[in-house]
Design a protein around this nucleic acid. Sequence first.
DNA 1: GCTACAGATGTTTTT
DNA 2: CATCTGTAGC
Length: 725
Amino acid sequence: MSLDLSTLNHEQLEAVLTTRGPLLVLAGAGSGKTRVITYRLAYLIQEGVSPKNILCVTFTNKAAHEMQERARGLVGRQVRGATISTFHALGVKILRTYPEEVGLRPGFSITDSAEQIGTIKRILRSLHVDDRRFDAKRILTLIGHAKNAGVNAEQFRLLEGELIHLPEEQQEEEDYQLITIEVYDHYEKALRIQNVVDFDDLLLLTTGLLKSNPTVRAKLQERWHYLMVDEYQDTNRAQLELMRLIAGERQNLCVVGDDDQSIYGWRGADVSNILGFADHFDGAKTVMLLTNYRSTGHILEVANTIIEQNTERYDKRLRAAAGEGDLVRITSVEDEEAEAEGVANAILALMAQGVPPADMAVLFRSNVQSRAVELALRTAHVPYRVVGGMDLFDKREIKDALAYLKLLHNPDDEQSLRRIVNYPSRGIGDTSLKKVDDWARERHISLPEALEQVHQVESLSNRSADAVGEFVTLMREHRRLIGRRKASTLTKKLLGAVRLEETLLASSDNATTAARRVDNMREIIRQVERYEKRIKKSKKLAAFESQLEETEAEEEEDDTFSEQDAASLGGFLSDIALSGMDDSSSKDEQQDRVVLSTIHASKGLEWDNVFLVGVEEELLPHRRTLEGDGEVSEERRLAYVAVTRARKNLTVSYAENRTRFGQIVPRTRSRFLEGLPEESVNMEAGALKPKKTEDEERAIAKDWMAKIRADLESKRTKPVKEETP
DNA sequence: GCTACAGATGTTTTT
DNA sequence: CATCTGTAGC
């Protein structure tokens, strides 16, 4: 099978053919970035590089899947050998193989952010610091930034002299840094005792491991000879370091990204990674992809004008492959309500012309803005979908059920233990727990360990001790079944034994909420089952394919990683921590609905028609960045990302007044709208037309509801097409 | 151990 | 205004 490279343009081809040495591909919005990556991957394989020696890293699971699928389309099942992974999943894989080297024990688990905050608060209290004076979240952010920069607790403390001594007006900031030095230390210890890592550890510890351990480093360098990184502008210091370490002397590292789309600086991403690529890697070659295949000319003009006012960037200008297209419409509206109604009407008008809702999106800077839009769309009966918000994970009943599984898998997980030790209530109240906790502290052992020998705690009544004993036995009994029973069976057994369902039903007076909660909880079981199925299928597939292989089954053992294989409880828990619950596939994911999204969440997506709302000072750019938190240039990039999502139609709006915290406040339009090229913009009012009559609206909406219902019906009857990962 | 009320807070969140 | 958090009180 031979790869057809003739569909690539000159620059894309150059990027694909440059396989040796450090390569920076600056891929402007809509310039065929994903194509280049997948073709390059395919090309490497075709040129005789063993897929096993290729590592592709992305940020999201979605991007990893997409790359996998598209590469499979080009080179078939050979992609299976290549490692295509997110940074964090890669970290887990490596750490699971060498846990002891970084102070972990096998089977460590991954915390979520709520647990992290809980841990911080507990540490503050143990340090006798008023946990109301310091915001745990803010401390956690500071720790996160340190970790993202590759700085561990020890090193952070050493930085004290440099970090501190801020001018007086930043006294508060200084206080936070001081307290963070203390907390960071304790936080790390707490995690290690519990055999737990947080998300940032997945990078920090992995990088640290490679840095300090030449054997492991050599092994990984021997495994991967060719590296590719997607969305490089979003990488942080630790990730750069990780890639540098794996690339080793070969330096076959290809990074793809767009500095103008760097919008995660606040999360620790470091634009200087991409801006300074040539300094970080000697002899780096740069290829710029500047032909935009997505948007029409006027949209691109506006985008270019907006972004060109940033100074710290690669100087480049996108050119449109398509024609001029329609003008960008910029409208002023009275307030957010009028704005939302205007958008709803414009959407209805497009629908009336036969444009499917899925070709439209409403983008905004901050989540609160979605409410007004949702309301208007609902009254107009426009089908919509709000993206983001992994709410399922935040549900209490889900967390409770998960905590049981986590504790089962990792007996040292104190955080999970605390969560469910008395839920459903079994007579282990705060006082009893406190007594055990104190007893544990005296003896310098952990709470879970203390619970194991609870009958030696003298201050505890027999009744309490028995209650604890019963709980400990329950967990121990179930833990013995790990490996002997399917994970799903075990899950059902444990959750049944503690009567979670019954508790949920009894606790809520409202029958519907109770039912919903039970259903949510059962979702966990379904997820475990789905996970088992997926693993089973991919194993089968692997076996099948190696059978098919004409060449002798050279399915040599992959000795880089410990085999973490079977549908185990631990595997499930990592999986769910890294990719969230997958409620997408079955539900309304690809249905015909208008998308409502924050600009952040819209990156990488595109629509024919885009409505960008609330383009006002203090919203975009956001107030917080104007007050000195963060940089306006990043806000500008945000505006740029938003604008470049549109293929054919872009409508930008700003309100004269907006209700904020219950107050009506006059607004000014965003600075990002100043100085736009007149010939590309339609400033005339009325882009968001006045209301249609109720009857007209209803007629259009009715049509669409009917169509959607029919769609749903046909989907239900058709068998669901199975995708193979 | 749950409910009710007061008080604070009010961006973005790939993993 | 609206939502979440923590605490007091039953």
